[in-house]
């Protein structure tokens, strides 16, 4: 549905986006991750036809955004970074405007507006000027605007930024519900969001793609992957027993007086660990296997290697 081919954007001598290529199919939710200034928003602005690329192409539903911008814009719902909205309009007037621009009139327009308002739970504030709304409501107005024409492609730049935990949860539910019949790209800083809604994650740093994988596979790149955390009073006897195991790389102190056994090369060590514990008959209060932390992998990949402890 979306095809990005060697897309590049240079601002003067700085390459904000540097030779980025990827595809997003229908049914996929792509999480776009990266530090601030990595090029996430710039890439989105090029896909939606706001910024012209310096090189490469962006294609949506078979239409090149440079050659057929209107065809692309008809098929895309876009929530821009920072949710720019006309402050003096009410959400109702704003949605009526968007519906007309999207080519709906009368009954059909009302139906689309109702559906978008229901999905984003905006019914109570429809007649208040947008400038008087809270940050969370503004974001939902922007989201409703993007959903209004039920587009094939959704590009959402930080859709949950500024929302409270309940609202975040609702927006994620909404994205998951729509995932089946659309191609969705979301950018975010929140890594748990990627694990919650994305079927795939791309990490971008300094304008280049540095990782493209499922969230689970990315988490597995963590050096904590398959490690075992255990809480015990008998740390003195448990520690040497674990250190003796062939697939345990190291045993370190974890918060709360617990121990953490790091797996060698991410191998599964839980059966070895439990066998060893049975052998020394140690009293264990709690034991858990780590899946790996996405935020750690994120730091690992986007930082220079030297800064990774």
């Amino acid at each position: 549905m979306i095809e990005i081919d060697h897309l590049t954007k240079a601002f003067g001598s700085i390459k904000a986006v540097d030779d980025v290529s990827f595809k997003v199919a229908k049914g996929e939710v792509l999480g776009f991750l990266g530090p601030n200034g990595a090029g996430k928003s710039t890439t989105m602005k090029m896909i939606t036809g706001f910024l012209p690329p310096s090189g490469g192409t962006a294609t949506v539903a078979g239409f090149d955004v440079q050659r057929k911008p209107i065809e692309v814009k008809k098929r895309v719902g876009y929530l821009p970074e920072g949710v720019p909205l006309w402050p003096d309009m009410t959400p109702r007037a704003f949605f009526e405007f968007i519906a007309r621009v999207r080519g709906f009139a009368g009954e059909e327009a009302a139906r689309h507006i109702d559906a978008a308002v229901k999905k984003t739970q905006l019914a109570d504030v429809l007649d208040q000027p947008i400038e008087t709304l809270s940050k969370g409501f503004k974001r939902r107005v922007g989201l409703a605007q993007a959903l209004l024409h039920d587009p094939e492609v959704l590009i959402l730049d930080e859709p949950t930024d500024g929302l409270d935990p309940n609202q975040k949860h609702e927006v994620r539910e909404l994205i998951r519900d729509m995932a089946g019949e659309k191609a969705i790209v979301i950018s975010t800083h929140i890594l748990e969001e990627v694990e919650a809604v994305c079927s795939r994650a791309i990490i971008i740093a300094h304008g280049k793609i540095v990782a493209d994988d499922t969230p689970a596979a990315l988490a597995a790149r963590s050096d904590r992957h398959n490690g075992v955390t255990l809480a015990t009073d008998a740390a003195a006897t448990v520690r040497p027993a674990l250190e003796a195991l062939p697939d345990v790389a190291a045993v370190v102190d974890a918060p709360g007086g617990a121990l953490f056994a790091r797996a060698r090369d991410g191998k599964s060590i839980i059966s070895q660990v439990s066998a060893a514990l049975r052998e020394i008959d140690a009293e264990i209060d709690q034991i858990s296997v780590e899946r790996g932390r996405l935020d750690e992998v994120f730091r690992q990949i986007t930082n220079t290697p030297s800064s990774h402890a």
Partner: peptide, 14 residues
């Protein structure tokens, strides 16, 4: 200044 131009220019309007 407010950035709404990004909204206008990504709608299917020339």
């Amino acid at each position: 200044r407010t950035g709404t131009i990004e909204l206008s220019m990504t709608l299917p309007i020339s």
